[in-house]
Nucleic acid binder design. Structure first.
Length: 114
DNA sequence: GAGTCATTCGTTG
DNA sequence: CAACGAATGACTC
């Protein structure tokens, strides 16, 4: 209840814009986004974590640089990751044990921007 | 394979 | 204004 305004910062806007450039069935990593945005992967995660555009920003399309599902809300507290995996799987991404099998195959890289 | 350090953004006190 | 936390990444042992 302390939050009333999403306060979308320019930085976040950039992250969402980049993520928005990631087509369905494809994923990207925090590191790549960070590099594209010229910041650190942590900052990207922070921006995604806030995600004022919940379903509009496919945070589930963002995974760790090692091909892991990475974090995701409640990744360490709950097991909501299952939904993320289910979604990615539905897009054509194979996931096994919380890890992307075709990670390199669906990975976008650093040419998405814009 | 596991553990630790480094970097940046956001939020709250 | 200052301090802590966090969806990571990379290096080293």
């Amino acid at each position: 209840m302390t939050r009333r305004e999403p306060r979308t910062t320019e930085f976040q806007e950039r992250v969402y814009a980049t993520l928005r450039n990631v087509p369905k069935g494809r994923v990207t990593t925090y590191g790549d986004l960070a590099r594209l945005l010229g910041t650190s992967p942590r900052a990207v995660g922070q921006a995604l974590r806030r995600n004022p555009y919940a379903p509009r920003v496919p945070c589930h399309r963002v995974v760790a640089s090692d091909g892991g599902i990475g974090g995701f809300f409640g990744a360490r507290t709950g097991k909501r990751i299952a939904e993320k995996i289910a979604l990615l799987r539905r897009e054509g991404v194979s996931i096994r044990r919380g890890r992307l099998l075709d990670f390199e195959r669906v990975r976008q890289g650093e040419k998405i921007i814009k």
